[in-house]
Simulated scan of single mutants.
Amino acid sequence: MTAAVVKILVSSEADDLVGHDVLNDLRNVEVVPYDPDVEELTAHQSAAAVLLPPYRSSHRPIRLLEQLGSLGMVQLLSAGADEWAADVPSAITLATARGAHAGPVSEWVLSAVLTQLRQWPTLVRFQDKGVWAHRKFEADTLAGKRALIVGAGAIGREVARRLDVFGAYSTLVASRARDDVFGPDALTEIVSGHSIVVITAPLTEKTRGLVGSEFLKRMDDNAILVNAGRGQIVDTEALLPELASGRLRAALDVTDPEPLPIDHPLWSQKGAVISPHSARTVPGTNRLCYKVAAQQIAAFLRGERPPNAVEHG
């Protein structure tokens, strides 16, 4: 007996066309294109059993959930599920593309740390003025540094692996203690002694505002805060005076608020390097996301719980 064909709703935007090719390799599926900005789905689209939000600005189709009467799964292309978790009913499987972002994001983290240690922002300012800045700045080395990585998932562990290549030492913290990973209760005691703090944790009620004034005060003088997780994990108002005084430095791919308004004081902090939530945005990342998504959907179609399924609703 031939298995029924399952409709998978996939964005028709340019960044998502690669996903059509990847998902068409699954057996007994029909890839149904849709516009993430549309107000109303067609009857054919509404019959889909799986919804994939688009690669960019993935929250846009949330309003379409109520039109999908046969929906059984929402498959995200992001590493976290915070933008969707509250809106997807608990009876519907919600899965992420955890693992696909580890390479690109860890590469960004490493580049951000080296940018601060090697004083590239200062050098570019000298260059803009035509100044040969020999002995006018103090660079530092990554070798021998200790890094605290908050978030021990695929991204956090890949960051640790890459730091190790440069002779740095990593301490990992996760939502629960295990083997070589500290639990959250130990965090306040182990922050000091690390010259680099990297945030790769997902946004949850427990991590929201985690890096607040007390956390920041415990960081070593001249330490670097690197946020590649979510902006709301760091208390911006608490971070600003630490940057303004020059006691701490930061490299931020995510901010709160986001996008950062043109007149926000974070822009003017010389100790901060800011990128526009683009740590994963390099060639090939969207294909990696769709490959992980295809694995999760294949498990769902086999009647299994996808490895990247998350609790929600």
Results as ranks from 00 to 15, higher is better:
Met1Thr: 12
Val5Trp: 12
Val6Met: 06
Lys7Asn: 11
Lys7Asp: 10
Ile8Asp: 03
Val10Ser: 09
Ser12Gln: 15
Glu13Gln: 12
Asp16Leu: 08
Gly19Arg: 08
Leu26Asp: 09
Arg27Cys: 06
Glu30Asn: 10
Tyr34Pro: 01
Asp35Cys: 02
Pro36Ser: 10
Asp37Ser: 06
Gln45Asp: 08
Ser46Arg: 04
Ala48Pro: 03
Leu52Met: 14
Pro53Glu: 00
Pro53Met: 00
Pro54Gly: 05
Arg63Lys: 15
Leu65Ile: 15
Leu65Glu: 07
Leu65Gly: 03
Leu68Ser: 07
Leu68Glu: 00
Ala79Asp: 05
Gly80Tyr: 10
Ala81Tyr: 01
Asp82Asn: 13
Glu83Thr: 15
Glu83Gln: 14
Asp87Gln: 14
Val88His: 09
Pro89Trp: 12
Ser90Glu: 14
Ile92Val: 15
Thr96Val: 11
Gly99Val: 11
Ala100Asp: 03
Gly103Thr: 09
Glu107Arg: 07
Trp108Glu: 02
Leu110Ser: 00
Val113Leu: 02
Arg118Lys: 11
Pro121Asp: 08
Pro121Met: 12
Pro121Phe: 07
Leu123Phe: 10
Val124Ser: 14
Val124Arg: 14
Arg125Met: 12
Phe126Gln: 02
Asp128Tyr: 09
Ala133Ile: 08
Arg135Ile: 09
Glu138Val: 14
Ala147Trp: 00
Ala152His: 03
Leu163Trp: 02
Asp164His: 14
Tyr169Pro: 05
Thr171Lys: 02
Thr171His: 13
Val181Leu: 13
Glu189Pro: 13
Val198Asp: 01
Ala201Cys: 09
Ala201His: 07
Pro202Tyr: 04
Gly209Tyr: 01
Val211Asn: 01
Glu214Tyr: 05
Phe215Ile: 12
Leu216Lys: 06
Ala223Glu: 01
Ala223Lys: 05
Arg230Phe: 10
Gly231Tyr: 06
Ile233Ser: 07
Val234Ser: 09
Leu239Lys: 11
Leu243Tyr: 02
Leu252Phe: 05
Asp253Gly: 04
Asp253Trp: 03
Val254Glu: 02
Asp256Lys: 11
Pro257Tyr: 13
Ile262Phe: 14
His264Lys: 10
Gln269Trp: 02
Ile274Asp: 14
Ala279Pro: 04
Ala279Arg: 01
Arg280Trp: 10
Gly284Arg: 08
Gln295Val: 12
Gln295Thr: 12
Leu301Tyr: 09
Arg305Val: 14
Glu311Cys: 12
Glu311Asn: 13
His312Met: 06
